[in-house]
Amino acid sequence: MAAVLANPIARRLLRIPPSYFVFLVLLATLWIARPNMLNLNIMGIFVRQIVPLGILVLGQLVAMRVKSIDLSGGGIILLINYFISSGTFPGASMPFFVVLALATGLVIGLFNGFMIGSRRVSAVIVTLAVSIILVGLVQFLSSGNPPGDVPKLFNDLYNTKFLSVPTPVLFWVLLTALVWLLLSRTVFGRYVASVGENAEAAHFSGVPVQRTVILAHTLAGLIAAIAALVQTGSIAVGSVRVGLDLPILAVAATILGGVVFGRGDGGVWGPFFGALCFALLFVVMTVLGIDEPGKLIAQGVIILGAAIFYGVRVRNP
């Protein structure tokens, strides 16, 4: 096996994020199983469903580039959905909700960042605990029942199209491009890359490691808030269960996209295709009649498989 891995062509192939291969395989499967589903309209609907995940992936990717992880997205989405749908702020306008959501995400992200960067607590524990606290709080406030309706404007905006492409999808692509610019063209992006590569070396080269980690988590919280707004627009009602499985899917999509704890081979577009893979995966699984338990198994196998793919490569550089 080592000999195969030492081959230059094999090594070149191993540098390509698995998401591209998986995407092609899934596309081929769908093309064989249901060729008539491969048209722009149907695909647009499926891809639109995955936009909240795709946006959450962007935050996850920034966190994972600094060798951290953010699992608090589920709690943030639930809390913001509750804010918008519960009627706690009667007569509030859409800009108010957007600002409120962004502020919520910012504060929670900042808290995560402070605990992880300053207090040096394990990121998994912090973000999971934050998520549990938020979920428990929302379920208590709504006494386990779904809260009320979402202002109509959210869903109306979600349903618009621009040149026959759904607006949320365009928004996702735009946001991805922005994060790509941030990570590849700014000083902060350089800092993120160097902290992920080797935090100690970065520290001795004068990179503000702590501040970078805190900022990365703040950004992840902010992006989770944007994902929450899109998710709320998509379901158009209050819910006490929405988005709870998204953080783990976001981790899976990010790893699939070639970004693994400090290593950023996939850039931003690898994870982008990672999220698209999940859009296709859900379609393929629905077509093949595989239900919820099968999806759980598939998620686990994908995370483990992608992580092993990278582990083997790191072991044989």
Partner: peptide, 28 residues
């Protein structure tokens, strides 16, 4: 105490006890 609040309190305890531990490594 409502079971939902109990879950939240458990999360808070986890955050507090782990937050009080010091370690060298940052991140995961």
């Amino acid at each position: 105490v409502s079971p939902f609040v109990q879950t939240a309190i458990k999360g808070g305890i986890l955050l507090a006890v782990v937050g009080l531990q010091s370690r060298k490594k940052m991140g995961l």
